[in-house]
Nucleic acid binder design. Structure first.
Length: 433
RNA sequence: GUGGCCGUAGCUCAGCUGGUAGAGCACUGGAUUGUGGCUCCAGGUGUCGCGGGUUCGAACCCCGUCGGUCACCCCA
């Protein structure tokens, strides 16, 4: 196509699909509020240096996936993830001085120049949250459990929680070295990808899917051996807390993530493998106790996660939300349109979702339209009704029809829709939203 | 970014070994000049992703390109 089209990997979300998005966003906002998180909105554009420092200059994300550009002498980047910006805002506004523990959540677009596929786009949406100021494993466990509950509410099948501990930065560095020492003699036996990783990100070799790498890694040292006593205790308590919560999980000593900032607790939640295939990681997160210090702020322990909204949408078996119209006002003829506009406005003032056809369509097509919109009642305004100040109230469900004064019609329609629990104002909040 | 597969009407898809296009759904109008969901009738539905090439002739074969998708890489 030579026509104008959306940029590769960036999608429109049309009204037909927006119901699913809103359903997940609302469920998330509710979960966050139940756990005392407050929403934060940070810019989509940040100085490139923020991501280089926070995420790590040898990570794939920073090395080859960022949308960076120059603008009036500044080097800027469309955010590839949410944690760095949140940490920057936390430091910039000295939030640590205002409250001991800070719980923030966010929702919004992220940008990475990867090769697009299902559930993986260049502009994609993440739900995320951060806790600043709590070093203990208790909030780690709460966060993981919260996510499991959230995903269960969304009816995501085959949930799988993986946890690991990376220890502190020094542990991580020592482990990296140990791994390189173990694997260097076997360089020739590794996959080409892993030969490259050996120099860049050796930890990633651990979860390589190549059988050659899996053999080479089989008797490699595990990070568990290098954890110091505090790290080990932290991890032990996390597991004990999860056990107490009854949260299902498995320890995966090979779980490693590609962002450099993680320390100690690391976790990942997968689900809906049949629908998502290899991209079934729904949530990834972990502790980053040194990021605020690395960014030049006070050292504040922190933990956070991000979830891919598009993937949640694919993974969720929740039925799509139905958006119905309650009533349709059907004016017949030019002179009825004004009376119809007034009537429709009065209905809406009562919380009735109401549509009106102002094009001068015939009654037949207006009724068809009302039917396909799922409306319960149609209020017909023709010449004789106009003359009498009346309206014909047709109940599409009950197949009844009655002529009455308009103010009476207002009351009757409201009563009928409330009785059927259909109007916006009367509908109780659905569970899980 | 690497490799594989796919690309026909708004949607889901047919189209046999190359002979220049079909179905269902949806949409609009009518059968009922002011009465829906069912039924019947009629009707737009199209640069066969795009650009080259081979051929008398290409939706079909070849090359390129764009887009999608699967696996890898990486990640949410």
């Amino acid at each position: 196509m030579t026509q104008l089209q959306a940029v590769k990997g960036m999608n429109d979300v049309l009204p037909d699909e927006i119901g699913g998005w809103q359903r997940i966003e609302r469920a998330y906002a509710r979960t966050m509020s139940l756990h005392g998180f407050r929403e934060v909105r940070t810019p989509y554009v940040e100085p490139t240096g923020l991501f280089v420092r926070a995420i790590g200059d040898t990570t794939d994300v920073v090395e080859k996936e960022m949308y960076s550009f120059e603008h009036h002498g500044e080097t800027l980047t469309l955010r590839p993830e949410g944690t760095a910006g949140a940490a920057r805002a936390y430091i910039e506004h000295s939030v640590h001085a205002r409250e001991p523990v800070t719980r923030w959540w966010y929702s919004g677009a992220m940008f990475r120049g990867e090769r697009p596929a299902r559930g993986r786009y260049r502009q994609f949406y993440q739900l995320g949250a951060e806790i600043f100021g709590d070093a203990g494993p208790g909030c780690d466990a709460e966060m993981i459990d919260m996510l499991v509950v959230f995903l269960r509410d969304l009816v995501v099948p085959d949930l799988e929680v993986l946890v690991n501990s990376l220890g502190g930065p020094q542990t991580r560095a020592r482990y990296r070295e140990a791994l390189v020492q173990h694997l260097t003699p076997k360089t020739a036996e590794l996959s080409p990808d892993s030969q490259r990783r050996l120099g860049t990100n050796p930890l990633r070799i651990l979860d390589s899917k190549d059988p050659r790498d899996q053999v080479a890694v089989r008797d490699a040292p595990t990070i568990d051996d290098l954890l110091d006593d505090d790290d080990r205790e932290h991890f032990r308590k996390l597991r004990a807390h999860l056990d107490a919560l009854g949260t299902p999980y498995s320890v995966d000593p090979r779980l490693v993530r590609g962002l450099d900032y993680y320390t100690r607790t690391l976790f990942e939640i997968k689900g809906a493998h049949e629908k998502l295939g290899a991209g079934s990681t729904l949530v990834g997160g972990g502790r980053y106790d040194y990021m605020t210090a690395d960014l030049g702020g006070p050292q504040v322990p922190a933990i956070g996660f991000a979830a891919g909204l598009e993937r949640l949408l694919i993974a969720s078996d929740l039925p799509p939300a139905v958006t119905a119209t309650d009533a349709v006002v059907a004016p017949l003829g030019e002179s009825a349109i004004e009376a119809g506009l007034v009537l429709a406005r009065d209905l809406r003032a009562k919380g009735i979702r109401c549509e009106i056809d102002t094009r001068g369509s015939g009654l037949r097509s207006q009724l068809r339209r009302a039917n396909s919109l799922g409306a319960r009642v149609v209020l017909i305004l023709g010449e004789s009704e106009l003359a009498e100040g009346a309206v014909q109230v047709k109940d599409l469900d009950a197949h009844t029809e009655e002529r009455m004064a308009r103010d009476q019609a207002l009351r009757i329609v409201v009563d009928r829709l409330v009785a059927a629990s259909r109007s916006v104002d009367s509908r109780p909040p659905a569970p899980g939203t």
